[in-house]
């Protein structure tokens, strides 16, 4: 239970940092401020893990309890849209990390470029997600009074009876988990849009680009959550 003594930073650095407009008064130096912001962001990411963790817990419990219905529901998802979206998110994670690199190197235009591309990729993800949701509406796979589920076939094309109520539970979880993930994507797109504008105006320099870094961390975490959602929802029940 110990960390490096960041608080003991020599008071002399104060004089150099005194002119840094981004340095807030209650920090001794820029390094302390940066370390604090980074730790704060990581702790926030932990809260996000626990936040989604509640739904992962529900998924685990219900998949064990209603295996057939979950498999049948899973097979109704569009694996190609899911895979495309995974690829889109991975590429966006690369552009984010390159944006951070550009910020560190002080390349303003490159930074803005990567941020814009990231936002566009995020929106691509959301549009594809939107098409997926539309498909669910058309097939009456949206939980509620209109829900209808009769599509479980075995390998020979013969229909296997599945309790449609339990399939509705699968789709409830599907919408809760992907919906909450999409909400995080929307927030991330908004965040990067603001940062792109600020970066364009020259708010960041090699000495101060913490917001870019932290927003990047957030984006990567949202990516990681999708990296788990994709196999859990789309992949693992295709043979059962």
């Amino acid at each position: 239970m110990h960390d490096s003594q960041s608080t003991t930073g020599p008071a002399t650095t104060m004089e150099h940092e005194a002119h840094n407009p981004a340095l807030r008064h209650h920090f001794a130096d820029a390094q302390q401020q940066k370390n604090a912001a980074s730790l704060g962001m990581w702790l926030f990411l932990v809260t996000e893990i626990m936040f989604f963790g509640g739904m992962f817990c529900a998924y685990l419990v219900y998949r064990l309890a209603h295996f057939n219905a979950f498999a049948a529901g899973s097979q109704q998802l569009n694996i190609w849209m899911g895979a495309t979206n995974t690829a889109v998110l991975i590429v966006s994670s690369v552009t984010v990390v390159l944006a951070v690199k550009a910020a560190e190197a002080g390349k303003r235009k490159v930074l803005v470029g990567y941020l814009v591309v990231t936002v566009l990729l995020g929106m691509t993800f959301l549009v594809i997600k939107g098409f997926e949701y539309r498909e669910k509406f058309e097939k009456h796979h949206v939980p509620g009074p209109t829900f209808n589920f009769t599509d479980k076939f075995d390998d020979n094309g013969k229909q296997i009876p599945v309790n449609p109520k339990e399939a509705e539970l699968f789709f409830s979880l599907y919408f809760a988990m992907t919906g909450m993930h999409a909400l995080h994507m929307i927030i991330g797109c908004g965040l990067f849009t603001v940062l792109a504008v600020l970066a364009w105006k020259g708010h960041y320099n090699p000495g101060y680009f913490t917001p870019i870094e932290n927003a990047g961390l957030y984006w990567h975490l949202v990516d990681i959550i999708w990296i788990y959602l994709f196999p859990l929802l789309y992949l693992i029940s295709r043979h059962s």
Partner: peptide, 12 residues
Amino acid sequence: LLVLTATTVGAA
């Protein structure tokens, strides 16, 4: 990461 994604889809 993309290759791994392709692998996991294929394995499915």
